[in-house]
Structure formats: structure tokens, C-alpha cells
Design a protein around this nucleic acid. Structure first.
Length: 575
DNA sequence: GCCGTTTTCGGCCCGACTGTTTTCAGTCG
């Protein structure tokens, strides 16, 4: 059995949690496994690099004690752990699929399994259709029908959409709701507000005199599939896109508390509520209370203030470092879109882009930027019509000509040079030396071992003419997994060589991700937010990159392209 | 299973909605 990656260890811990939950184990024990899974997947070091007895390193992580540390080490080195094998022998794997059916939790799934012998979704469907489910105690016709409907949704359940797409839907919903008079305030909460790279559902809060009227209007939302639930203050709809949207009508004096509560994250709220408890306070979605006395909740600031905390930006609310920062009074002032001075990664119609050099420049200028690096592909990327040294030099001459015509924006002569499968770059140092800005990328050999890919990238960063390592994990959200790479090792080299790592702003990429951005900041590596635009519209992606950077706790100083090109040049020379 | 300015045991965030119930369990976020 090969050693497991952190992601695989985390998946095993999640599986243990699922199986324990199905068995009706202590919910806090289940949570401990889920917390551990999260801690491991977010950890920048590699578990399998630890020696089999080195549990002390792991117990430093919050939520991991001696027992879990041991299990994690055994998992990482042997691929499994006795508890997991035991649970698997007791619960057929296919049974876990039932937990993905909306409306089916561990209790009902266990009842179906034990009393009707249901083991798969197909058997579950048959049990519903033959009306055997409704005869069970605690079940009825409606639950049976809901399960039947939920089986089809189970496949897509858990699928999250990328933030940019959710944003389009959110904005169209806002527009619809704003058409209704009488809504005093309207705010999105949830992972969408936190700017998480993928969004599972949308949470909308409204303050209005007549809640029922708001709900009636919500039921007319564009793209509506069905109303899932509707009560006095809460309503859920499902859109044809598969996205669920929850609406809550809240009293004005509770808006801050509701916004805080429904923005989450769940983990952040658990910490917050735990802190409230030690202060003799209670926090719920209606406010902060001492006994029956309400001590805050109109605004989010009031909620945090009542707990002795400064307001924490939604992007940071993941129960990672934000409470520690808040306690020490050093919450970062997060980078914003207006801090960005230019883009250091863009393509043109010389390779696989659609716009001309000049069109890209004018679009960048329109966004208020003072520079744009043209970084077309090099020859190895044949599918994109990558540039040979000769064509690249011809492009740079063209850039010189366009620059003479342009006012208020400067084009940089750049290239996205390919890091070859066997190591090395596919353009000579002689050519790279003539460029203003060189980003290096891995496009081929993404299935190589972690050691090989890491070595290729480290070598590329050690090349004196390479400035930046682009889309550092190669992932495409929801489509392609990141390649195996030791980012911590890469960052250490980048720090030593004074090189830059990119946060690719394309909504499907967004790597470095939030956790990696935080690691870069900790290790003193500057991050360049690059759009990787292949069209003039593509430049607009900068805002997605900025959002991810904010989630990583980056300030303007941590982001390279919040500086003028003159400042960047000085910075690069100081190597 | 974790954790400690309630510290080695006894807690662990909190409420809305639904359906199947006659007072509550299960699910969800």
C-alpha cells in the first residue's frame, strides 16, 4: 500500500465520520473526526513525511489529540487503520450513499437499512415504490415521496458551483427582490458572502414589514424549480440550476446577529458561541443575550463587540487564524480590488487568446490599471499555438510599437514559459533575459510524482530569469484535481530566491487557494494575482482573485501587483 | 474524540421547519 496524501488521509477520516454517524455514535466524536479531516487537508506539511512515531507534530494542530494523531500516522503510512476496516465490515459502503439523499440522515438511513435491508439507492427506490417505506414507524407517505424525489438529487447533492457562477445567480435574485417595494434591507450571507471558491447554496436575509409578502415574491424568483419549504420566517427554494436558496425574514434589530449567524462558517460560529458561553452570554440569530437581556445584534459590529472582539471580515471566518489575530489586535487589513495596479498574466491572439495586444491594453486601461504583462504561451504548448523564440521576439517588437501609441498604460514584454516534463524550460536563458516579466507554468506531466514535479518547479524558480510560478497546482475546480506538489518546499525556495507565486484569478483555477495564500504570507513569499485572461472580458476575473487573496488574509503589501511597475522592477532587481 | 482562567470529567452552538406525532424526533444549516 503506497503512502497516502493529506487529501486521502482526510477522505479516510471523513469516511470514518460517516460510518460512525450512520451507527449513531456520539455526535461529538463524529465531529472530532470531521475536524481532524479539515485540519489535515488544510495543513501545508505532508503527513506521510512524518516518521511513524512522530505524533507530537500532529497534536500541535487544534482538534487533534494523541488518539487521532496515531490514527492519522497509521493511515498515512499504511493506507488504512483498524477502526476503518472494522466499520467497513459492519456497514456496506453503498449504504453511505443514502446519507446524500436530502431528508435522509443517519437515523432514518439506519432504520431503512436494518428494517428493510436496503443497501443501495436502487433498492431504496424500489422500497419507496412498493410503499414499504411508509409503513415504518416514524415514516409516512410524505417522507416516502420526499426520499423518492431525493434519490435523483443525491447524485448532484454535494456538488458546489464556482463562486463566479453563484454570483451571477445571486445578482439576478437581488434584482428580482429589489423590484418589490417594502423590503427595507436585503443581504446575502453564507459561503457566498465569505467569498468561498465554491458555493453550495445561497442564503438571503431580508428586513421587511410584511414577511409573507416577501415570501410570495420570492416564490416568483427567476429560474425557480420548486418551493422546498416555507414557514413563518424561513423559506427555501430550489432553482433549475440545482442551487438551493434560503430566504430568512428577520427583524431589523436582529439583522446584524442574523447576518453573522448565517454567514458562518459553522466552525467560526462554534468558536464564537463557545467564547460567548465563557463570558456568560448566549449568541443566536436574534442577538447576543445575557440572560433575557439583549446586549447587541443590530449590526455585526455589535455582535463581535459584545464578545470583546473587533469585527472580523467574512472572508476570514473559517476558524483558522482569525480569532488569534483578533485577540492579538493584528487582524490584517485585507487587499481590495482598488489596490490592484495592473495584471501580470494575460494572453493575446498571438497564441490562444481572442483579442489583439492593443485591445487587451485598452481593456486593462479601462479597468484603471497602469500596466499589463503580455504573457503568451511558449512553443511546447502546441495546442495553444505557443511561441518560438523567433515569434516571441517578433511579438515583443509589436508590443514596442503598440506601447508608443498608448497613453496611460504600459505593456510589459512577458512570456508564460513552459516547465518541461524532464525539467528545464522550453526557451533559452538568452531569450528569457530579454523579457520584462517571465512566468513559468507546468502544463505537461501533471501525473508525475510529487518529488518530480516539485523538483521541476524548484529548478524553474532557481532560473535567474524566471520571476513567477503560475497557477501553482494546476487544478480546475470541480474538473481536475491539483497535481501532487510540495508547495511548502516550493515556497521556501521562492522566499530564498525572492521569487513570486501566482494566485491565478480564473474562477475555475483560483490557485494558490486561500490556505496556500496564508502559507505564502507566513513564509514571506509575495503573491501576484494574475487573471490569465484570454480575452478582454477575462481581465474582469481580477476580482475573483482578490476575493481568494482576502480569504488567505493577504494585505496589499502581500500582493505584488498592488505596486507600480517601477516599484516592482526595483523589487525584482534587488535579488 | 478533544479540551481546560468552570482543567483530567463533563461538557461540546443553536434554532426553524417538517412530518408524524398528540409532545417530539429527525434533518438541516
Amino acid at each position: 500500500m503506497p503512502e497516502l496524501t493529506n487529501a486521502e488521509v482526510a477522505a479516510a477520516l471523513e469516511e470514518i465520520a460517516d460510518l460512525l454517524e450512520f451507527q449513531g455514535a456520539n455526535p461529538f466524536r463524529v465531529r472530532a473526526y470531521r475536524n481532524a479531516a479539515r485540519a489535515i487537508v488544510e495543513w501545508t506539511q505532508v503527513v506521510s513525511d512524518l516518521r511513524p512515531k512522530d505524533s507530537e507534530t500532529l497534536t500541535q494542530l487544534p482538534g487533534i489529540g494523541e488518539d487521532l494523531a496515531q490514527k492519522i500516522l497509521v493511515l498515512a503510512h499504511t493506507g488504512t487503520v483498524p477502526l476503518l476496516e472494522e466499520l467497513r465490515s459492519q456497514v456496506p459502503e453503498s449504504v453511505l450513499a443514502m446519507l446524500r439523499v436530502p431528508g435522509l440522515g443517519p437515523k432514518r438511513a439506519a432504520t431503512l437499512h436494518h428494517q428493510l435491508g436496503v443497501k443501495t439507492l436502487d433498492e431504496l427506490r424500489e422500497a419507496c415504490e412498493s410503499h414499504r417505506v411508509r409503513q415504518l414507524k416514524g415514516f409516512g407517505e410524505k417522507i416516502e415521496a420526499a426520499i423518492l424525489e431525493g434519490i435523483d438529487l443525491a447524485a448532484q447533492a454535494g456538488e458546489r458551483m464556482c463562486w463566479a457562477y453563484a454570483d451571477q445567480i445571486a445578482q439576478s435574485l437581488l434584482e428580482h427582490m429589489r423590484q418589490m417595494p417594502g423590503i427595507e434591507k436585503l443581504e446575502f450571507a453564507g459561503s457566498y458572502r465569505r467569498g468561498k471558491e465554491t458555493v453550495g447554496d445561497l442564503d438571503l436575509l431580508a428586513v421587511a414589514g410584511d414577511g409573507q409578502q416577501v415570501m410570495d415574491h420570492f416564490a416568483q424568483a427567476p429560474g425557480l424549480d420548486k418551493v422546498v419549504a416555507r414557514g413563518d420566517t424561513k423559506m427555501s427554494i430550489r432553482l433549475r440550476s440545482g442551487l438551493q436558496v434560503d430566504l430568512r425574514v428577520v427583524p431589523e434589530e436582529s439583522l446584524g446577529a442574523a447576518l453573522q449567524y448565517f454567514t458562518g462558517s459553522k466552525a467560526h460560529n462554534i468558536v464564537l458561541r463557545g467564547r460567548a458561553k465563557t463570558l456568560g452570554l448566549k449568541v443566536n440569530e436574534y442577538g447576543v443575550f445575557r440572560g433575557d437581556e439583549r446586549v447587541g445584534g443590530r449590526t455585526e459590529q455589535e455582535v463581535y463587540e459584545a464578545l470583546g472582539l473587533p469585527w472580523i471580515a467574512p472572508e476570514l471566518r473559517e476558524a483558522r487564524e482569525e480569532f488569534d489575530w483578533a485577540d492579538r489586535g493584528c487582524l490584517p487589513e485585507l487587499v481590495s480590488l482598488t489596490d490592484i495596479c495592473g495584471d501580470l498574466h494575460a494572453h493575446t491572439d498571438w497564441t490562444d487568446g481572442t483579442a489583439t495586444i492593443e485591445e487587451m491594453a485598452l481593456a486593462a486601461k479601462k479597468l484603471g490599471w497602469s500596466y499589463l504583462a503580455i504573457t503568451d504561451h511558449s512553443k511546447r504548448v502546441t495546442m495553444a499555438n505557443g511561441l518560438t523564440a523567433e515569434r516571441l521576439r517578433a511579438q515583443w517588437q509589436e508590443i514596442d510599437r503598440v506601447n508608443q501609441r498608448l497613453k496611460g498604460i504600459r505593456l510589459l514584454k512577458g512570456v508564460e514559459v513552459d516547465i518541461l516534463e524532464g525539467g528545464g524550460l522550453d526557451l533559452s536563458d538568452e531569450v528569457l533575459a530579454e523579457a520584462d516579466w517571465v512566468v513559468a507554468s507546468v502544463h505537461y506531466g501533471q501525473n508525475q510524482s510529487r518529488e518530480r514535479i516539485t523538483r521541476r518547479v524548484v529548478e524553474a524558480l532557481q532560473n535567474p530569469y524566471v520571476h513567477c510560478f503560475s497557477h501553482p497546482t494546476g487544478r480546475l475546480i470541480g474538473r481536475r484535481k491539483p497535481y501532487e506538489i510540495d508547495l511548502e518546499a516550493v515556497m521556501k525556495v521562492a522566499a530564498a530566491e525572492r521569487k513570486v507565486l501566482e494566485l491565478n484569478a480564473h474562477p475555475m483555477r483560483l490557485d494558490l487557494d486561500d490556505v496556500a495564500c496564508a502559507a505564502a504570507r507566513r513564509l514571506g513569499v509575495l503573491v501576484a494575482i494574475g487573471t490569465d485572461a484570454h480575452s478582454t472580458d477575462g481581465l474582469e476575473a481580477m476580482r475573483y482573485g482578490v476575493l481568494q487573496a482576502r480569504r488567505g488574509g493577504l494585505t496589499a503589501a502581500d500582493v505584488l501587483n498592488t505596486r507600480s511597475w517601477a516599484q516592482i522592477k526595483k523589487l525584482l532587481k534587488r535579488k
